[in-house]
Computed example of a mutant assay.
Amino acid sequence: MLHATGAIPPDPREVFVGPIDLAASVDEALAVQAVAFGLTDDEVGVRRHIVLRHLATPGARAYGASTVDGRLVGFGYGMPNDRTQWWSTVVHPYLRQEGNDAWLTDAFVITELHVHPAFQHRGIGRRLITLLTEGVSEPRSLLSALDRESPARALYRSLGYRDLACGVRFPSAPSPYVVMGALLPLRRR
């Protein structure tokens, strides 16, 4: 369909991925996470403070996926691992038990990565995580994911992530997680 100007309108499904000011877009990002991950309003409120605190970490970076009309449909952020941070202290015993605790040193952690369900299976998650880890100074990357076979876990494996510790229990999380690690740069298609 042509606009009145005779131009072809942009495809509303087209998505652009690039760096974002996540602090300025935190509410929009958490709305995507709530839909993609099934969060309650209370959980979103708690995560808002966590995200803002993480973004103050030196080396933290964030990327977003937006439609041509500026709607955020995916985001990811990460930061260099700090063994004293909560996530690291929870996963450390699980990694140690598997002989993989050295992965916590010199690692870039993918803290969150979410794509709105209407935009999944289009390579957006792959672009986000690849850009997040591109050019970081750490030689490896870590992330945690639900400990079940899923498209997300298949994506991570295709990028070179492997299971380092399974059955990881985070306080208040009803399901177990897996900690995965990959050497950087991530595998390309």
Rank of each mutant, 00 (worst) to 15 (best):
residue 34 A to M: 05
residue 35 V to W: 01
residue 35 V to N: 01
residue 35 V to F: 02
residue 35 V to T: 14
residue 36 A to M: 05
residue 39 L to A: 02
residue 43 E to Q: 15
residue 43 E to D: 12
residue 43 E to W: 02
residue 44 V to L: 07
residue 47 R to T: 10
residue 47 R to C: 02
residue 48 R to K: 15
residue 49 H to T: 14
residue 53 R to S: 11
residue 55 L to A: 08
residue 55 L to K: 03
residue 58 P to D: 09
residue 59 G to C: 07
residue 59 G to A: 10
residue 61 R to Q: 13
residue 64 G to V: 08
residue 64 G to A: 12
residue 65 A to H: 03
residue 65 A to F: 09
residue 67 T to F: 06
residue 67 T to Q: 14
residue 68 V to M: 13
residue 70 G to V: 08
residue 70 G to N: 11
residue 70 G to Q: 13
residue 72 L to V: 11
residue 73 V to S: 06
residue 75 F to M: 12
residue 75 F to Q: 03
residue 77 Y to I: 07
residue 77 Y to T: 03
residue 79 M to Q: 05
residue 83 R to Q: 13
residue 84 T to L: 11
residue 84 T to C: 06
residue 86 W to I: 12
residue 88 S to R: 03
residue 88 S to D: 05
residue 89 T to W: 07
residue 89 T to S: 13
residue 89 T to M: 13
residue 89 T to E: 15
residue 89 T to Q: 15
residue 91 V to K: 04
residue 91 V to P: 01
residue 93 P to Y: 08
residue 94 Y to G: 04
residue 96 R to D: 10
residue 97 Q to P: 00
residue 97 Q to C: 03
residue 98 E to M: 11
residue 99 G to D: 07
residue 102 A to V: 06
residue 102 A to T: 12
residue 103 W to N: 00
residue 103 W to K: 01
residue 104 L to P: 01
residue 105 T to K: 04
residue 106 D to E: 15
residue 107 A to C: 09
residue 108 F to M: 08
residue 110 I to V: 14
residue 110 I to G: 01
residue 111 T to F: 00
residue 111 T to N: 06
residue 113 L to W: 00
residue 115 V to K: 00
residue 117 P to E: 11
residue 117 P to F: 10
residue 118 A to G: 11
residue 120 Q to R: 11
residue 121 H to K: 13
residue 122 R to C: 03
residue 123 G to K: 03
residue 123 G to S: 09
residue 124 I to Q: 00
residue 128 L to K: 01
residue 128 L to W: 00
residue 129 I to H: 00
residue 130 T to H: 08
residue 130 T to L: 06
residue 131 L to G: 08
residue 131 L to H: 11
residue 131 L to Q: 15
residue 132 L to K: 04
residue 133 T to M: 08
residue 135 G to W: 07
residue 136 V to Q: 06
residue 137 S to D: 14
residue 141 S to P: 00
residue 143 L to I: 02
residue 144 S to H: 13
residue 144 S to N: 11
residue 146 L to E: 12
residue 147 D to L: 10
residue 148 R to C: 07
residue 149 E to L: 09
residue 149 E to P: 03
residue 151 P to V: 06
residue 152 A to Y: 07
residue 153 R to E: 07
residue 154 A to I: 05
residue 155 L to A: 09
residue 155 L to N: 03
residue 156 Y to G: 02
residue 156 Y to H: 04
